[in-house]
Amino acid sequence: MVLREPKAEDGPAISALIAASPPLDGNSAYCNLLQCSDFAGTCVVAEREGRLLGWISAYRPPSRPDCIFVWQVAVAAEARGEGLGGRMLDALIARSASRGARELTTTITEANSASWALFSAFARRHGAVLTRSTRFERDAHFAGANDTEWQASISPLPFIPSN
């Protein structure tokens, strides 16, 4: 398995992986292309024998440069159970684009047990603490159309020295 930065040509395969990974929200193809180009340093693709099997989209929020926000994690059905999600998260925080980040955040619905397990295991593996708080509420932010999104905050992240 090769973990690498995405490139724009990965866009269609990423869109297909997201579509095959409910409950992830589908992004526009253009959004995926921007993530693969403008945010490549904080995104990860996992590839085996030329087949894209994993994807993490993430970014450094402009108002919180000490943070990495993980937007989506997708693992193809054929690669589930291999610990790929955790390996991609580890690769993300080891990147130069992640240097200086002290916290990783994401949002997860209450019912998404796979994501809670992934991020809880990541926190344990790195000796960090996972806290949760409401980020976007079902009625106030989604007009009842989406479950409440809970923010999972993990800190402190491991110190990655500058080269």
Score class of each variant (00 low, 15 high):
Val73Asn: 09
Thr134Leu: 14
Leu24Ala: 08
Trp55Leu: 12
Ala117Ile: 01
Leu104Phe: 08
Glu78Asn: 05
Arg64Cys: 14
Asn163Pro: 15
Glu110Thr: 13
Arg102Leu: 12
Val70Asn: 04
Arg124His: 09
Leu104Glu: 04
Asp38Arg: 15
Glu137Ile: 01
Gln151Cys: 07
Ala58Glu: 03
Thr105Tyr: 00
Arg102Met: 07
Val44Gln: 12
Cys31Lys: 00
Met1Gly: 11
Val2Asp: 13
Ile68Arg: 03
Leu92Tyr: 10
Gly86Phe: 09
Glu149Phe: 02
Arg95His: 06
Phe69His: 15
Glu49Gly: 09
Thr42Arg: 03
Arg51Glu: 11
Ala145Trp: 00
Leu157Arg: 12
Ala19Met: 02
Glu110Ile: 01
Leu104Asn: 05
Asn32Arg: 00
Ser153Ile: 00
Arg135Ser: 03
Ala40Val: 06
Ala117Arg: 15
Pro22Lys: 15
Val2Leu: 14
Thr107Ser: 10
Ala94Gln: 10
Gly85Tyr: 12
Ala16Leu: 10
Ala123Ile: 07
Leu52Glu: 03
Ala114Asn: 10
Pro62Tyr: 14
Val73Asp: 06
Gln35Ser: 14
Ala19Gln: 15
Arg64Trp: 03
Ser21Asn: 10
Ala145Tyr: 00
Cys36Arg: 03
Ala117Asn: 14
Ile93Cys: 10
Pro62Asp: 04
Glu149Thr: 07
Ile108Asn: 09
Pro161Ala: 04
Ala117Gly: 15
Leu104Lys: 06
Arg132Cys: 01
Gly85Ala: 11
Phe119Tyr: 14
Val75His: 10
Ala40Thr: 06
Thr106Pro: 00
Ala101His: 11
Phe119Asn: 11
Phe136Thr: 02
Ala29Ile: 02
Leu17Gln: 05
Glu149Ser: 03
Ala8Gly: 13
Val44Glu: 09
Val2Gln: 15
Pro22Cys: 14
Thr148Glu: 08
Leu33Gly: 08
Gly81Cys: 06
Glu5Lys: 03
Pro23Glu: 00
Pro65Glu: 12
Glu9Gln: 13
Arg124Gly: 04
Arg4Tyr: 13
Pro6Gln: 08
Leu104Ile: 09
Asn112Val: 10
Pro6Arg: 07
Ala143Asp: 15
Leu17Ser: 02
Trp150Met: 11
Leu24Thr: 08
Asp147Leu: 13
Glu110Phe: 05
Gly85Trp: 13
Phe119Pro: 07
Arg60Asn: 02
Val73Met: 09
Val73Tyr: 05
His141Pro: 03
Thr131Ile: 01
Ser98Cys: 07
Glu110Asn: 07
Thr106Leu: 13
Pro6Phe: 03
Arg132Asn: 05
Leu53Glu: 14
Ile68Pro: 10
Ala16Ile: 05
Ala123Tyr: 01
Val75Gln: 10
Ile93Lys: 09
Ser96Lys: 13
Glu47Tyr: 08
Asp25Thr: 11
Asp10Met: 05
Phe122Thr: 04
Cys43His: 02
Trp116Asp: 14
Asp66Tyr: 01
Leu84Gly: 11
Ala114Arg: 13
Ile14Pro: 02
Ala16Phe: 06
Asn146Arg: 10
Ala29Asp: 12
Arg135Pro: 01
Gly81Pro: 06
Thr109Met: 14
Gly41Thr: 08
Ile154Asn: 01
Ala117Phe: 03
Ser133Ile: 00
Glu78Tyr: 05
Ala128Leu: 07
Thr105Trp: 00
Ser96Asp: 15
Tyr30Val: 12
Ala20Tyr: 05
Gly83Pro: 00
Ile108Glu: 07
Phe122Lys: 12
Asn112Phe: 03
Val2Met: 13
Trp71Tyr: 06
Pro62Lys: 06
Pro65Trp: 06
Arg99Tyr: 08
